[in-house]
Design a protein around this nucleic acid. Structure first.
Length: 469
RNA sequence: GCCCCCAUCGUCUAGUGGCCUAGGACACCACCCUUUCAAGGUGGCGGCACGGGUUCGAAUCCCGUUGGGGGUGCCA
């Protein structure tokens, strides 16, 4: 390897951008940044029916979100694999000319039939020495040499493959188009990639690709296969079964910083007593050699905990800014005219310690903006199912009608009304809370009442009393 | 079936032959604080898969077993 290292991230645009892909990208990014190398983004969009152009933009946006910006000098690309098909085919022809590959006219069915008869699975090398030329329906296969292929992997160490267990894989399809193994290697060669850091599922491909590098006359890159991310069943995270779309987490109010930090600690840990660390520390310390070897469970609870930590660590202004999309978006329960930024600002600090994702913000403050609270039936029946609750509501209403209007005075008034009924403050505030906010839980009550104002509060207390008969 | 990878608390991990009576974090439990809920504080529960070696000494090295996972396409 000469010069600065060149890493690459090569996703295929076949769906929403996956958290596993995000972690792989982040690993590559951290390495490229620390070593003064380059991060090459290559979209592997080779003629696959599943590819959709919008997914490509999704990848770029998602990378941007987690700090992998195409405007950063470390970033190179995106390149699109489909644009290099000619090079892939030319390389395949060179391989053929040099005797490293040969054409075969067997159909998949015929191959299967032969495998069945011989009792050995896979392609048996039937056309190796038939000297076929190219033609419609004929695939080009790589002639796997005899011997042993040793893959030196930065994460796994030395991995040995007996070449006889590697079948003569397809380079060019019957229609002449290049296959993944070939295209991937050719692009890595021409983009001068020095380090291939990818998920473990590619490890079985690696001896084939290494053989290709060698047949092409190049020194193979440094390989590193990081463990896959798994679900609670310990199966590889899948788009079908699991919630894996990075975009979805973003939409639910996860912070990029929390997501980045969490993803980096799956399979690796920074030095010290805490895993919550700034990106700069991650970038300084991350080493492939330190990556764990076993699959890592993508734990929503831990992600949530990280997110809560990051939310609480924000300055008040940053927090308020971050909340904007959840306050002024199209799916909030109040109208734009009802929303009062100064009210939210006054309450923001109390909201900040009570949420794990930003999407939980509206339910904590909706009663401040709506004319009448959204009543949670469970809260209502639990609170007013007893005579105590109703009595307290009545007595609380009478106390609030004339007291001073600030949080301290409101608290005292409710406390006094409660003690007359033999209720402690915890019990006494509940009926007021439900009548005013619609729920048994929420931000500290008296601060909210103060902000809401006497008129609005009395209106709600009276409405609740009327409803109770 | 075949090939390959892996194995420390439930989970993510620290640990690279003596500092380990195995450390931290999430989760869980208890207590404190408290106007609900959180947050915060304190404490607790809980692990080196098993069996053989090697060594004065093994979570750390070797072998086997068992158990997981990945791959096995004219997908990427």
């Amino acid at each position: 390897m000469v010069g600065a290292p060149r890493f690459r991230f090569a996703p295929s645009p076949t769906g929403f951008f996956h958290v596993g892909g995000a972690r792989t990208a982040l690993y590559n990014w951290a390495l490229a940044k620390r070593t003064g190398g380059t991060f090459v983004l290559r979209i592997e969009d080779t003629d696959e029916a599943r590819n959709q152009p919008e997914w490509t933009q999704g990848i770029i946006d998602a990378l941007e979100w987690i700090g992998i910006s195409r405007n950063d000098p470390t970033f190179e690309g995106p390149y699109f694999q489909s644009q290099y098909a000619n090079e892939h085919v030319a390389a395949a022809e060179r391989l053929h000319a040099a005797g490293h590959a040969y054409y075969c006219d067997l159909t998949p069915d015929q191959i299967q039939e032969r495998a069945k008869q011989s009792g050995k699975p896979g392609y048996d090398g039937y056309s190796r020495d038939r000297g076929l030329g190219p033609g419609p329906g004929r695939v080009l296969r790589f002639r796997v040499p005899e011997g042993v292929t040793v893959v030196n992997d930065l994460v796994r160490g030395r991995v040995e493959f007996q070449n006889e267990t590697i079948e003569d894989f397809v380079l060019l399809r019957g229609n002449g188009s290049p296959m993944f193994l070939l295209a991937n290697v050719i692009d890595d060669v021409s983009m001068r990639v020095s380090h291939v850091v990818r998920a473990e599922e590619h490890l079985p491909n690696t001896p084939k690709q290494q053989l290709l590098w060698e047949a092409l006359g190049h020194e193979p890159p440094v390989w590193a296969h990081v463990p896959v991310l798994v679900n609670e069943q310990r199966k590889k995270l899948s788009k079908r079964r699991d919630k894996v779309a990075l975009e979805q987490y973003r939409a639910e109010g996860y912070l990029a910083s929390a997501m980045i930090n969490y993803l980096m600690t799956l399979g690796w840990a920074p030095q010290g007593e805490t895993e919550i660390v700034p990106w700069s520390k991650i970038q300084d310390e991350f080493r492939l050699e330190d990556v764990n070897h076993s699959p890592a469970f993508f734990d929503l609870k831990k992600l949530a905990a990280f997110n809560g930590e990051y939310i609480r660590a924000m300055s008040l202004d940053d927090f308020i800014t971050a909340c904007q999309p959840w306050l002024t978006g199209t799916d909030v329960p109040w109208t734009a005219a009802q929303y009062r930024p100064e009210i939210f600002r006054a309450l923001a600090e109390l909201v900040q310690t009570r949420i794990v994702t930003l999407s939980e913000v509206p339910q904590l403050v909706d009663f401040m903006f709506l004319d009448a609270p959204l009543v949670d039936e469970t809260s209502w029946s639990k609170t007013f199912g007893s005579a105590d609750g109703v009595a307290m509501l009545r007595s609380g209403r009478d106390a609030l009608v004339s007291c001073d209007w600030n949080a301290e005075a409101l608290k005292s008034a409710v406390e006094a009304a409660g003690s007359n009924l033999g209720l402690k403050l915890g019990k006494a505030q509940a009926p007021i809370r439900v009548a005013v906010t619609g729920r048994t839980v929420g931000p500290p009550l008296f601060e909210a009442l103060e902000l809401l104002g006497r008129d609005a509060v009395m209106k709600r207390l009276d409405a609740a009393l009327a409803k109770l008969g």
